[in-house]
Each structure stands twice: as structure tokens, then as C-alpha cells.
């Protein structure tokens, strides 16, 4: 079968808070039910995580709060420095080497050119006092756009796509509802046509009906744009709706991965079985 190469390949992703000690792994990880070493106090936020995303694919990461999902995503986006691991991205103009080893200048460039991110908390992804159009223009500037008219057109096109009334383009997101703030974040994340879209708990904390609308929007954008996407969520309903393949994390480790319908209908690991049987999906 002539399948495309992965667009993102990450191996051995590791993030720890603390210096570690020789007995850390005797006490931490999914099998021990904790991520903090009782001997030295080091927190292993994520340990040895491998992940692959193919073009057009939507990969999910699910697990309880604190399992390390956001840590994985934030390392990929250079929000957090990795303590170990290797990341490769196959996209135009991206070097074929471990992208964790780049200079911080080049990391920023790369992030602006190939990635888009949407955080759970809009204030992490948006400048609340800058107009929504201005938020998008800033992102486009960082990605190398220069023509003001083009940027304004692109911003209004995206706000329309994400169902933000275009007449509110000059208003600051501070005044918007939570759902609309998320839609502005999504518009901003997509503005530079990223090769890879990262979504971190984007509907968590929203009212159920607002959640539904944001999920519908994301699904529709996926159908139209086919952007390779990583969806991080503690909510199996979100994972079911958006992803075709997913990984299950616990205490910083991946305990299981598979096709999403298989994970939901035939979970293998004890933890996944518990997660599925206690979820209403």
C-alpha cells in the first residue's frame, strides 16, 4: 500500500520536574499509579512517549487530568523544553533532524511556519485586549506576512469560517463569550495554514451546547482543510467524535493505543477499561 509518510514523528518524549534518582522508575509510571518519585520527589510528567501523525490524520490523546497529555503537546509546540526525545516534521522547508536540537530562534520560526495551537484557556492563545483581527494579523506577521490588506482579508475570511461575526473583527476577545473566544483562537491557529494543528482541551469548561458547536466547527474544518491534528482531551466523547486513532495516557506513560473505535469497544489495558466503562459515550 502506498501510504504517505508521517508528517510528525516523535520518539521518547520525556519531561521531568526534578533531577531524578536511580530508583525513580521503580516507583513511578502507570504500573505504580503515580508520576512522582517518593525517594527524590521528581515528577515525571511524561516518559518515553512515541507518537506519529500521518497527513490528514487526527490523532487523539486521552487520559485523566495530570496524566501528561498537555505536557506532550506543549513539548511539540516548544512551550516546554523536552528533557529527552526526538521530533521530526515532514513539511516544506523543515530540516531533517531532531527538531528539539534547533536554536531557539529557529524553533520560533518553525513553530510560526508549521504549527497552529488552540489552548483550553483562551488567554494563553489570544491577547485579550487586542482586537480579534489584530490577534490574527500578529500571527500572520510572525509567519512572515507583510501586506496589511492581505492580512485583513485573511483574518475576515477565517473569522467567517469560524462563525465569528466579521463585524466584531475590531473588537477585543475580552468582550466575547467563552465559545466565541475559542472560535477566534481556532481562526488564529489556522491563519498561517499550519501543517500541524494542536488542540489542547479546547471544549473543556464550556457549556454543553457551546461545546457541541465548537466540536461541530472543528469537525467541519477538518473535512474542508484536512490538517493533520493532535487532539488532547480527557473527554472520550470528544475523542470519539474527532479522532480516528488515539493513545491512552496514565501517570506520564502511554498504556495503550489503537483505532479509536477499537479503544472504545475493545479496550485492552485495565485503565482504559475503567475509563471507558465509567464514561458516558
Amino acid at each position: 500500500m502506498n501510504l504517505p509518510h508521517p508528517i510528525l514523528e516523535a520518539r521518547g518524549l520525556t519531561k521531568r520536574y526534578g533531577d531524578g534518582c536511580p530508583t525513580c522508575f521503580d516507583h513511578t509510571g502507570a504500573a505504580h499509579g503515580r508520576n512522582r518519585c517518593p525517594d527524590c520527589g521528581t515528577v515525571w510528567a511524561c516518559r518515553d512517549v512515541d507518537l506519529t501523525i500521518h497527513p490528514q490524520e487526527v490523532l487523539g490523546v486521552v487520559g485523566e487530568s495530570g496524566s501528561g497529555k498537555s505536557t506532550v503537546l506543549k513539548m511539540l509546540h516548544y512551550d516546554l523544553e523536552a528533557d529527552g526525545g526526538d521530533m521530526r516534521v515532514r513539511a516544506e522547508g523543515v530540516e531533517d533532524s531532531n527538531l528539539f536540537d534547533l536554536t531557539s530562534f529557529r524553533k520560533r520560526q518553525l513553530r510560526n511556519a508549521v504549527m497552529g495551537i488552540v489552548y483550553q484557556h483562551p488567554h494563553l492563545g489570544l491577547r485579550m485586549n487586542v482586537s480579534s483581527g489584530g490577534n490574527i494579523a500578529e500571527r500572520l506577521l510572525m509567519a512572515g506576512w507583510r501586506n496589511v490588506g492581505d492580512m485583513r482579508n485573511r483574518a475576515s475570511e477565517l473569522l467567517e469560517r469560524t462563525e465569528v461575526p466579521v463585524e466584531r473583527m475590531d473588537e477585543a476577545p475580552r468582550n466575547f463569550s467563552g465559545g466565541m473566544q475559542q472560535r477566534v483562537q481556532i481562526a488564529k491557529a489556522l491563519s498561517n495554514r499550519p501543517a500541524l494543528l494542536l488542540l489542547d482541551e479546547v471544549t473543556t469548561g464550556l457549556d454543553v451546547s457551546v461545546q457541541a458547536r465548537v466540536l461541530d466547527l472543528i469537525r467541519r474544518l477538518q473535512e474542508e482543510l484536512h490538517v493533520a491534528t493532535l487532539v488532547v482531551s480527557h473527554d472520550l466523547g470528544v475523542i470519539r467524535m474527532l479522532t480516528t486513532r488515539c493513545m491512552v495516557m496514565k501517570n506520564g506513560q502511554v498504556v495503550e493505543s489503537g483505532l479509536t473505535d477499537q479503544i472504545l469497544e475493545d479496550p485492552q489495558h485495565a485503565y482504559t477499561q475503567l475509563l471507558v466503562s465509567s464514561a458516558l459515550v
Partner: peptide, 17 residues
């Protein structure tokens, strides 16, 4: 297009395809 494949062990993304 890819000859005989074992669906029991086929890599996940190939199964998706």
C-alpha cells in the same frame, strides 16, 4: 492495490486507509 494483507496485524493507519 497492495496484495494480500493480514487484517489482524495490519498497522493501524493502513487499516484506516
Amino acid at each position: 492495490t497492495a496484495g494480500v494483507l493480514d487484517l489482524a496485524t495490519l498497522p493501524e493507519h493502513a487499516m484506516v486507509h
